[in-house]
């Protein structure tokens, strides 16, 4: 058995791994929310589609990397399509209508995933075949490093994009103030399209990277998407940095709680965290009161 200290390190590792995924999903949610004012409740399904499309592409003989790239593109296109077909036509609708639309899309996508991939779990191989690392008495699987790496690189690239490209600056402007961005001639419809496509891409990457650890099923996205929301709320919903911190924090909280509580309650913990944050600090842990 592991000693208690190494056990904590173990929790930390698994918390950071899943937390990175939550952070990425939260980031996509926050970008979408800031640009469009919509909470995209279908984001979890983008994760599913990315992961399972990669499985299928490998099955039909694509080399790994190509399969992953194509899967990301597929999920991005699903995002694009969702925006064009359901969000754009309803941009003037009420918040409730838009939320129900994204829920409707998520149900439809989950059904499609079930039809295509069935109920049984699929998996992807670990990116490298290396022995697990031993670290302070805890085991770190190499795939976790890839997940962490993905989070760091994606966040780095995103912030570079925000800082150094015109579109990026436009997106950031729109995130800060939608009306102002429109006034200076940034096309909101284009940005909305960007937000959903971007969500598809980020979510698919998350799905592909985590699948070697967790396996992939048609309904894997549901809880992941919700956890993304919890992370986003922890971070304050409108704050990209906050979303990342919220994601990592949620992962770690969950891992420690799961280590000490009956395992099934893990999902309940995320919900409690969300409700408590909403009720006590609606602007998130970073936000001002």
């Amino acid at each position: 058995m592991l000693g208690s200290e190494s056990q904590y390190v173990q929790y930390l590792f698994s918390g950071l791994t899943l937390g990175s995924i939550y952070a990425l999903i939260a980031l996509a949610l926050v970008v979408t929310f800031n640009i469009t004012g919509i909470f995209n409740l279908a984001i979890g399904e983008f994760v599913t589609i990315g992961a399972l499309a990669a499985v299928t592409l490998r099955d039909v003989g694509c080399p790994n990397v190509l399969a992953y790239i194509l899967a990301v593109i597929v999920a991005g296109l699903v995002g694009t399509l969702m925006e064009r077909a359901t969000i754009n036509p309803a941009r003037k609708a009420s918040v409730l209508t838009l939320i129900i639309i994204t829920i409707g899309v998520s149900i439809a996508l989950r059904g499609a995933a079930l039809l295509i991939w069935g109920t049984h779990p699929h998996t992807l191989p670990a990116f490298v075949h290396a022995a697990p690392l031993n670290f302070l008495g805890a085991v770190l699987i190499p795939q976790s490093l890839f997940v962490l790496g993905l989070a760091v690189v994606a966040v780095g690239l995103l912030f570079t994009f925000f800082d150094f490209t015109f579109t990026g600056k436009a997106v950031r402007a729109a995130m800060m103030n939608r009306t102002a961005a429109q006034l200076v001639g940034i096309n909101p419809a284009r940005l909305s399209l960007f937000a959903f496509t971007f969500s598809g891409v980020i979510a698919a990457l998350s799905g592909i990277f985590i699948t070697p650890i967790t396996t992939a099923t048609y309904d894997m996205g549901f809880m992941l998407g919700l956890k993304g929301f919890v992370a986003a709320i922890l971070g304050g919903v409108t704050n990209a940095t906050g979303a990342i911190i919220g994601g990592v924090l949620l992962g770690v909280i969950e891992a420690f709680a799961a280590g000490t509580l009956p395992s099934g309650l893990k999902d309940a913990i995320a919900m409690i965290v969300m409700i408590v944050v909403l009720l006590t600090r609606p602007t998130g842990i970073l936000g001002e009161r």
Binding site: T86, I100, I101, G104, S106, I107
Partner: peptide
């Protein structure tokens, strides 16, 4: 096809009603 994938149409119909 197996499973309860009829929810696809369920989802689609709702989106259409909302739209």
């Amino acid at each position: 096809a197996g499973g309860e994938f009829e929810i696809i149409f369920f989802g689609i119909i709702f989106v259409l009603i909302m739209l």
